[in-house]
Every structure is written in structure tokens, then in C-alpha cells.
Design a protein around this nucleic acid. Structure first.
Lengths: 193, 193
DNA sequence: CATGAGATATGAACGCTGTCAATATTGGAG
DNA sequence: CTCCAATATTGACAGCGTTCATATCTCATG
């Protein structure tokens, strides 16, 4: 394996480098050429592995979705038992995890749910985060914790509210301190008692 | 006024041209140079009126916010009388107007609420759309139409849900047909009876 | 072991972009 | 009428994404 030619795993290396740069400075500030330079590779080398720049960014966006999913998985793992309290904690915990991701990984969040990735990615109802949210709602419903007659359309409403709150956080339109009041308000609207 | 030199009202003309192009193709596809060319003006002429490209785009974003505000104003004008039904209609109508704007003016919406404008623009609680939403909630409250104990934090929650739904529409993650079910679900969560 | 095919990287080039400095032209106030 | 501030131009710079022809490497097959 000569050191000067043929990187060997350029695709992964480029995604890694791009991921780091997106997290630090946002997708707009990332150039294909600078990534290639950092990897000591010519700019055009990328085109053996990605159709174009957006294709690479889409791969980075997929990492973002995976990272979010993992955060939410950790929440579920922390509340495995089947009690009503756990059902409540799972629901609010998932919301908190989603918003924490938006706060901690602002730039990555913007790429993952931005126009570049939205175009050619799977519909939300097939993503891990959305499915976890739905099953948390189903859980609440199973325990009779939802306000009567509110289940219909609730998936989308809760998803929209959470995602909307996340984008407001990301844009700086709302400070991080607003997260807990938001979760409380949501719970008050949805959960009985 | 010589025809070849000194445009006369370049600033407004550039905003108009940029607005048109953003609406048609999105802010990413709009270049300062192409706008200048369309106006038969040199590229650097823009820098007498705008600090940089983002500055121009921010002016376009302000137009977007104004357009949204006008849509919402029309809704309020259509339901002026003070009855409980009007209070309900104002609230759901404002939501519908917000989402219709997102659907009709996808690209403009993305610019107006995107990272470029979010940075240097006034906080949401001072914008027309947000204020109209709040006063619609106050109206519902005055008529005793809110579920008891739900008023606190409701501003932000409803704003987040509406804005989130709008971004989901804009990204194509959700089809326009999902709007009415969403409005219904929201109303069911918030409004009593 | 040699060979050729296919994957991978290179270098140079194209047209485009935002931005800036120096220069020229303009309209209007004194 | 003259001079000034506002406005526009020209020309240049560095950087971008992308493409094409070319070079090099790896590996399976004969």
C-alpha cells in the first residue's frame, strides 16, 4: 500500500472529515476541496465515490439521523419497565433527547433535516426517531394516559411540535431554557391527570 | 437621467429581482452577479447598497415575513365579530394561513426562517405573525375556550407546532393533505368542547 | 508469473461565484 | 459654476464544484 497514491478508504474518510467540519462550522462552510486537501488527496478524487457534493453531504446527514436515533435509544433503555410513570418518562424523555440533539449538534441537525437531505431521504414515518415517538404515544394510549379522543392525528402533531421547537432552538429564535416549559406544556395538553 | 449609468433606485430593484428569483428557485440558486446582470448593472454596484450578499437576502427575507403577516391579517379581517365561533375561526384560520404560506411560497419561507435571516432579525415575539397568534390564544382564553390550566407556555407550544408543521411541509416530509388533520388535532388538544 | 481489466487517483482546465480596490461618472448643494 | 458625496464601472483575486483525459494501483485469471 503505497503512501502517496490510492488512499484506500477514501469514502469513509471523506464522510468522517466532512462530518467533523459540518459539526464545527455548518454545511455551508464546508467545501469539497478543503476536505480533499485535509486528506491529502486531489479534489476530483471524491467523484469516484460520490456523485457530487450534495451526495457526500447526504451521507453526513445520515450520520446525523443515526446519532439522533442513538440518543433516543438510550432514553428508551433507561426506562424499560412497564409502569405508567415509565410511559410518561419515555415520552417526555424522547422529546428532551430530540431537543438536546438540536442544541448540542445545531449544524448537524440543520443538515440532517435541511433541504439537501430531505429531498432524497426516506419519509419520516420510516425513520427510527419518528417510529420511537409513535410507539411512545401508543404506550401512553395503552395505559389510558391520553386525553380521550385525542389519539387521531396525534403522531404528526407531536412530531411537528417537537421538530418545530427544535428548529426554533437551532435558529436561536428561542433559548435552551424554553425546553422544559415546552415539554411541560406538551405533556399538559396530551397526557391525562 | 442617463440611461446607461446610475440606475437610480438600485437597492429596491435588486430586492425586487432577488425576491422574484428566490420565490422561483430558492435562495441557494440566486447569485448576486446574475441579479446585477438582469438589471444591466455591474456586479460590484450592489456593494453601495448592501454589505454583502446575505445582507441583500435578509432584505428579501423581510419581504417574506411581511407577506406572511399580510396573509394572517386578511384572516383576522375576515372574522372581526366577537363570537366564540369567530374566536375559533381566527385561531384555526391563522394556522391555515401560516401553513398555506409555507406551501405556496416554499422557497421564500425557507429563506425567511432560515439561518441567514434568523441571525440578524428581531426575536419572534416581536414579529407580527407571532403576536397575532398570541392574541388569538388570548381571545380563546377570554371566551373560556381553552382547556383549564393549559394557558401557561401555550404560546410557544402552538408556535412550535405550527412552525414545525410548516417546515415539514416545506421539506416535503409531509403532504399538503396533512394540513387539515393537523389543524383538527391541534384544536382538539387546545380548545374545550 | 505475467497480463489485462477495473477501480482509484491525478492534473489541468472551465465557468462560475462573492468580494475588493482603484477609477470614473453623476446629480445636486453651495 | 464648481465641488462633493453618492453611485456605478473596470479589473482583478481567490475560491468553488465539476469534468476530462491520463496515470497508477490492485487483483483475478490464464
Amino acid at each position: 500500500m503505497s503512501r502517496t497514491y490510492h488512499h484506500g478508504a477514501l469514502a469513509e474518510a471523506m464522510v468522517d472529515e466532512a462530518l467533523e467540519r459540518v459539526r464545527a462550522h455548518g454545511a455551508d462552510q464546508v467545501s469539497l476541496r478543503s476536505i480533499a486537501q485535509a486528506l491529502e488527496v486531489s479534489p476530483s478524487a471524491a467523484y469516484n465515490h460520490f456523485a457530487d457534493k450534495d451526495d457526500l453531504l447526504r451521507a453526513v446527514g445520515a450520520c446525523g439521523l443515526a446519532a439522533l436515533d442513538e440518543r433516543m435509544s438510550r432514553v428508551l433503555a433507561a426506562h424499560p419497565a412497564d409502569t405508567t410513570d415509565d410511559a410518561r418518562a419515555r415520552f417526555s424523555g424522547l422529546g428532551r433527547a430530540y431537543l438536546a440533539f438540536a442544541i448540542d449538534e445545531t449544524h448537524l441537525f440543520q443538515l440532517t433535516f435541511g433541504p439537501i437531505c430531505a429531498a432524497k431521504e426516506l419519509p419520516p414515518e420510516e425513520t427510527g426517531p419518528f417510529r420511537k415517538l409513535i410507539s411512545a404515544l401508543d404506550d401512553l394510549d395503552r395505559w389510558g394516559l391520553l386525553k380521550p379522543g385525542s389519539r387521531e392525528g396525534l403522531d404528526l402533531t407531536v412530531w411537528a411540535a417537537t421538530h418545530g421547537m427544535a428548529t426554533l432552538l437551532v435558529e436561536g429564535a428561542v433559548p435552551p431554557e424554553a425546553v422544559e416549559p415546552f415539554i411541560d406544556s406538551m405533556a399538559r395538553l396530551i397526557v391525562r391527570e
